[in-house]
């Protein structure tokens, strides 16, 4: 049996352009004042396929980093320097949240004081005893 081809039309929420405007305002604010912004994509109504379209519009820039803590997170610079896409997954690889961060460098990339302190302890122990804690 053959079926007629399925016609799928993509409705539009009209919000894609608004998000791009918001990003461009945030980027000019970052340059002028240093203020950072983050946009939670979960809070914005998007039609099926629109998030993908948004990510395509933002493209991929020079830096991509992967964080491995409580599941993977992907930190990707967009083709517009200063605009980052941060995607958090749980350990099943399911997306827990996606944020557009407008910043020179997402906070998660920087080493954290608590982690450095723990690392320093472990390093000292290694030097003193030859074994890791």
């Amino acid at each position: 049996m053959s079926f007629p081809p399925l016609e799928i039309t993509r409705p539009e929420s009209g919000n894609l352009k608004l998000i791009l405007h918001e990003i461009s305002h945030a980027l000019s604010e970052l340059m002028a004042t240093g203020n950072e912004r983050s946009i939670d994509l979960r809070g914005i109504p998007l039609a099926p396929g629109e998030e993908k379209k948004l990510l395509e519009s933002l493209g991929e820039g020079e830096i991509r980093a992967e964080l491995d803590a409580l599941g993977k997170s992907r930190i990707q610079e967009s083709r517009y320097s200063g605009v980052w896409i941060v995607t958090h997954c749980n350990s099943n690889g399911e997306i827990m949240g996606r944020f557009i961060e407008i910043t020179r460098s997402p906070a998660l990339l920087a080493a954290q004081t608590e982690d450095m302190a723990a690392g320093l302890d472990a390093l000292r122990q290694l030097i003193a005893t030859g074994t890791e804690s």
């Binding site: 939670d40 809070g43 803590a69 997170s73 958090h88 949240g97 998660l108």
Partner: peptide, 23 residues
């Protein structure tokens, strides 16, 4: 064994979960 980065990730998704602004 959750690192501070892991904790911050947890807090970011929690804020989103509670519909609170990322700030």
């Amino acid at each position: 064994g959750v690192s501070r980065r892991g904790f911050l990730k947890f807090c970011a998704t929690t804020a989103s979960l509670m519909a609170l602004p990322p700030g």
